[in-house]
Simulated assay, not measured.
Amino acid sequence: MKTPLYTIALALVLASCSSDQPKNKKAALDQLKKERIALNTKIEKLEAELGQDKKEADLKDVVVTELSTMPFMSYVEVQGRVDAEDNVDVMPESPGTVTAIYAKVGQHVSKGQVLVQLDDKVLRQSVAQLQTQLDLATTVFMRQKNLWDQKIGTEVQYLTAKSQKEGLERQLSGLKSTAAMNKIKSPISGTVDAMDLKLGQSVSPGAPIGIRIVNADRLKVKALVSENYGGKVNQGDEVEVSLPDVPDNLHAKISFAAKVIDPISRGFNVEVKLPSNKTYRPNMVAILKIVDYRNNNALVVPVNAIQKSESSEYVFIAENGKAKKVDIKSGKISDGKAEVLSGLKAGDKVIVTGFQDLNDGDGIKL
């Protein structure tokens, strides 16, 4: 009895397993299909991203500048030096020996102030002797005049006394003028920049004696400009003055422009007045950038961005994600920038970096 029952149970189990097998396979198939759909979606997404990356990789990186109107100037650049309006080497008017020095280097002096005294002993004695004679002649003249006023004496006596007095006055005046020439005076107000005289030194008229007076409150820049710019540089032109040794930069105007071309240097002198500044010193180097052209509403691009062919010059601009070649006409060039006369307009985005290998129509990335 036990064996038949066991056999029947085993048969029922096998029959049940055999009926579940198709259901399991169907479920597995459905699961695989779902996984395939998910994989396909991921594959499509990655392919799209790879395609986009490849497309972007083909774009060329560039840097652009958007054009707008601005002032543009070109310059004539020359080197000059700082000079004093009043820079004087003092010279004696008469020969003599130095007996006293009343000024020293760095001292401020006024116009007419005595700087040096020359030996005038003989002249002073002559002045004193002549003064005595004049005093006597004056007394004689006054007495003769009183007598003449009373109709006493002759007219000849009166005129003789008057002539002697006036003659001595003229002699004394001339002698005092000669004596005054033995005092070396400052011709200007300023600072003693050099004083190389020594006591006992002999000096001669018209010869430098080592005294220089400088008025540092009135300075200017002097420069020589080539005759090529004779028609471009004029008095009143704007100029940028650079003093590298200070350093300092300032804007001014040309205060003087010579009308004559020097036959040796083939240039002409210009001057620019400087404001008072304690740091400015005569003979400092100065760089002048004289404005010879101005356009207040110019379109300007870097010179390096302009390319040239045999028949034209051109730039690339960025337009709708692509490089576009545009023929232009340039004008003046200054400080690495060029004025654009035609071909571009305000708002154009000129490619200033990365244009070297571009062709018209290439894709670009800003």
Rank of each mutant, 00 (worst) to 15 (best):
G200I: 11
G200V: 12
Q201F: 07
S202A: 14
S202Q: 14
V203Q: 03
V203I: 10
V203H: 01
S204T: 07
S204D: 07
S204I: 00
P205M: 04
P205T: 08
P205S: 10
G206F: 01
G206T: 02
A207T: 13
P208N: 05
P208K: 00
I209W: 02
G210E: 04
G210M: 10
I211H: 02
R212Q: 13
R212A: 10
R212V: 11
V214H: 00
V214R: 00
N215W: 02
N215C: 04
A216V: 07
D217L: 03
D217S: 11
R218E: 13
R218I: 04
L219S: 06
K220H: 15
K220E: 14
K220N: 09
K222C: 01
K222T: 13
K222M: 11
K222A: 06
A223K: 04
A223Q: 04
L224N: 10
V225T: 05
V225Y: 04
S226E: 03
E227M: 04
N228D: 14
N228V: 05
Y229T: 04
G231M: 08
G231K: 12
G231W: 05
V233E: 03
V233L: 09
V233Y: 07
N234G: 10
Q235G: 08
Q235P: 00
Q235Y: 02
G236H: 07
G236P: 07
G236W: 08
D237M: 10
D237N: 15
E238T: 09
E238V: 00
E238S: 13
E238G: 07
E238H: 12
V239L: 09
E240H: 05
E240N: 10
E240R: 09
V241E: 00
V241K: 01
V241I: 14
S242G: 01
P244S: 08
P244E: 08
P244T: 11
D245Y: 10
P247H: 12
P247N: 14
P247Q: 12
D248C: 05
N249V: 15
N249Q: 15
L250P: 10
L250Y: 14
L250F: 15
L250W: 14
H251I: 13
A252N: 11
A252Y: 01
A252D: 09
A252R: 13
K253H: 12
K253Y: 08
K253T: 14
I254M: 00
S255D: 08
S255G: 13
F256W: 04
F256T: 00
A257E: 01
A258Q: 09
K259N: 13
K259G: 12
V260W: 00
I261V: 15
I261M: 07
D262A: 03
P263Y: 04
P263A: 06
P263E: 07
P263Q: 04
P263M: 08
P263N: 06
P263R: 09
P263F: 03
I264L: 09
I264M: 08
I264K: 13
S265D: 11
R266E: 06
R266I: 05
G267Q: 05
G267C: 10
G267V: 07
G267S: 15
F268S: 07
N269H: 12
V270G: 06
V270L: 13
V270A: 08
V270W: 07
V270P: 09
E271Q: 15
E271C: 05
E271I: 06
K273S: 14
